[in-house]
Design a protein around this nucleic acid. Structure first.
Length: 446
RNA sequence: GCCCCCAUCGUCCAGCGGCCUAGGACGCCGGCCUUUCACGCCGGUAACACGGGUUCGAAUCCCGUUGGGGGUACCA
């Protein structure tokens, strides 16, 4: 039988990293075994759902590259089927009507304003074999009757989820461990309606530094936010795959298709994983460096457009393109790009107090360096090597190695102590007059 | 409280009875390279929670303890 999995988010917020990881593992399993990936929106709780959130959910999945084969199905459109099952269970006495105080009310047909609870059998044991956890067992005596149909006429998650999985022929339910304790109830429902039980795989939770389940309120978990900060989809997905799973050959940073090749749901481990931003950055930087020039240029566009920290009309695509060759390898996210090139498109170098303090105030012989450089650069050939030689010579005359010597010149021209290769930047992207003007301006400020 | 789950370096992953004086990655700390930063390279730091078993032999199996987490809604 071919494997069918589903990602079934409820549109109550933006897609967050935990859900994305669940979606990814379902997708990976489907793609690695040639199965079908179904997308189902679990919008049974009308009060908390918003359609615009559904749209953003789909957009984020699309961005991540997690394409689905079926759906999206909307649980809200299956209300009649859910009602049918609730009525059936009620008629068969497996469930009963109850009022707002959870008191049983007689009757074997749905009644407006009354909820329906499933009757928990006594003395039974519900056990199943979880792909990642192994044998798991619950005693029904520890569980209580549970609501399957609300008094407002809508199905509860447990019922809708069980019925939909059964109707959609889901063979593997891959989801977060927070849903583990709900399994016995779902099993009871499945057994009651005579549907086969899917195979379960409960993924370890993603946790924060306090080791608590990642939460929208406390933690930085929106996939959209990461995208906006300049993380690449392939890096996000690559990093997420590393949480709870590891490639057999220890090669961690790699393309998705290779991960599909290597992934096996049974290799997923059980312990909760900390979402480590530092490692995400590393993975991102590695993917970013591997981008071809055209690809990089296309992806960085949003960061150098209207929202960039310089007047749009001063942006020069040609110079920027040249700069990309010099700075791409230094970036950790696309969002880092502006601060490596902004000085080119601003009227004056950036004003960074720390840099000024470090190079101009505390640094050695800043005044002499600037004076000497101004003279040396006034008539040297405007080429990288010549500029390097000129600045180097000025430094030497002051007993400074190039590393120290270039600091004040760098801050005078760019505003910062850190940035792209200075002489190449000047030669290829700046006019001699502008460089000299900035050096003079800095000198005057000393 | 009750139920369930988990437990290897700070973090992620490897290890699935002998190959382990425990391996890789991120981070961190040195060094090299170097016009800053970064990249790259070299080196270092650092873990099998504890206690009992089982076994010739345990990080690996079993039990307990401790610690952590999840669930316990007419949320999903």
């Amino acid at each position: 039988m071919t494997s069918r999995v589903r990602f079934a988010p409820s549109p109550t917020g933006y897609l967050h990293v935990g859900s994305a990881r669940t979606a990814l593992f379902n997708w990976l399993h489907a793609r690695s075994v040639g199965g079908t990936f179904v997308l189902r929106i679990e919008d049974t709780d009308a009060e908390r759902n918003r359609t615009d959130l559904t749209d953003s959910l789909l957009a984020e999945l699309d961005w991540l590259g997690l394409d689905w084969d079926e759906g999206p199905y909307f649980q809200s459109e299956r209300r009649d089927r859910h009602r049918e099952v609730a009525e059936d269970l009620l008629e068969r006495g497996l469930a009963y009507l109850c009022d707002a105080d959870n008191r049983e009310v007689g009757g074997s047909a749905l009644v407006d304003g009354l909820a329906v609870r499933f009757r928990m059998p006594a003395g039974a044991t519900m056990d199943f074999d979880d792909v990642v956890r192994g044998k798991v067992s619950f005693a029904t005596d520890d569980l209580e009757d549970f609501v399957i149909w609300r008094s407002n006429g809508s199905p509860v998650f447990l019922l809708a989820n069980a019925v939909d999985d059964a109707d959609m022929g889901i063979t593997h339910a891959i989801r977060g461990e927070d849903l583990l304790s709900g399994v016995p109830k779902v099993l009871l429902l499945l057994d009651a309606i005579g549907a086969p039980r899917p195979t379960y795989a409960h993924l370890p939770l993603l946790v924060n530094e306090q080791r608590k389940k990642l939460s929208k309120r406390r933690d930085d978990v929106s996939i959209g936010d990461y995208r906006a900060r300049g993380y690449l989809a392939e890096a996000m997905v690559n990093y997420l795959a590393l949480l709870g799973w590891g490639p057999p050959d220890d090669v961690e940073v790699r393309p998705l298709d290779e991960i599909v090749e290597l992934f096996r749901i049974e290799d997923v481990n059980k312990a909760a994983a900390f979402f480590d931003l530092k490692k995400l950055e590393h993975v991102n930087a590695t993917h970013l460096r591997a981008l071809s020039k055209p690809d990089f240029m296309e992806r960085v566009t949003p960061w150098v457009g209207a929202d960039a920290p310089w007047p749009t009309d001063r942006f020069d695509p040609g110079r920027f393109s040249t700069m990309v060759d010099l700075v791409q390898e230094k970036l950790r996210t696309l969002g880092d790009t502006p601060r490596f090139v902004d000085f080119l498109f601003l009227d004056e170098p950036v004003d960074d107090p720390d840099s000024w303090e470090k190079a101009m105030v505390k640094g050695p012989s800043a005044a002499a360096m600037l004076d000497g450089t101004a003279v040396a650069l006034a008539d040297c050939p405007w080429e990288t090597e010549a500029i390097l030689a000129a600045v180097s010579a000025v430094g030497e005359s002051l007993g400074l190695k190039l590393g120290k010597a270039q600091a004040s010149v760098r801050v005078a021209v760019t505003g910062r102590t850190v940035g792209p290769p200075l002489f190449e930047t000047m030669a290829k992207c700046m006019e001699r007059d502008e460089v000299l003007r900035r050096i003079a301006r800095a000198r005057a400020r000393l």
